[in-house]
Nucleic acid binder design. Structure first.
Lengths: 122, 122
DNA sequence: ATTGATACATACTTTGGGGTAAGTACTTGT
DNA sequence: ACAAGTACTTACCCCAAAGTATGTATCAAT
């Protein structure tokens, strides 16, 4: 019967996040479709803006810069801009961002095994 | 200048997924805000529908069942229904789903370290 | 007869994340 | 003078995911 409600929406959820479920906390920072993909490419090595764009052709520039700003605000990536023209901006993982490499790595490993049918024979 | 386009949208992205970025493949299956959270609670142990709901109060029943169906279709969780009344339905990780435990575990570990400021001093 | 519990289903509305398209600043190359 | 390249910004739109609310089947207990 669903009661009436009490608590709902992702925003309100942010409070009790860590206590009950650390994964919820993580999803606040790296949730969404694109962020792990961006982090993956940065885990391979530092990249310029245009290089990230080339590595992920399907992402639009707006969404890319949007997520890069967010990741920077969340202290997961560091933006380094050289004051030259044309601009030269490099993105790299922060210490905290590097802490996510095991997560990204585990995802990549699972994806390869799963797609190879390693789990399919029951 | 954004060219004209060529390829775009998440759907079309599914093709070249694995070759260039295994993480993209993984995101097709466990992407989104709620799925990793659900998988986390199932990684703790098998749970009935109502138990999952209690573990994640902020999720609505519609969204919960919706994701459970999707996870079942993607062969990550197994649904076991006992033909009794009132119904008794248990959800558990499949073999493939268990392969995600390292991913979920790494996320939880990172979340705890990050929230404790372990990465913040620099 | 009504309530309660379980595990959903379904219609309807909303919102914000993502997509499209175009513009900006500054300089180098032709 | 004009195009090209870099790293963005801005305005507008759209749809799918999420939220709201209510309904359903079945039986046991009061």
């Amino acid at each position: 019967m669903a009661a009436v409600k009490e608590t709902s929406t992702i925003q309100e959820n942010k409070q009790y996040a860590l206590e009950k479920c650390p994964v919820t906390y993580a999803m606040e920072k790296i949730g969404g479709y694109w962020k792990p993909i961006i982090l993956y490419h940065l885990s391979i090595g530092d990249k310029r803006y245009s290089e990230i764009k080339k590595a992920i052709p399907a992402i639009t520039e707006k969404v890319l810069i949007q997520h890069l700003k967010q990741l920077e605000a969340d202290n997961l990536v560091i933006r380094e801009a050289l004051p030259v023209v044309p601009p030269h901006v490099t993105y790299k993982l922060s210490t905290s961002g590097k802490g996510l490499i095991p997560v990204i790595g585990a995802m990549a490993t699972w994806a390869i095994e799963e797609s190879n049918g390693m789990y399919s024979h029951l």
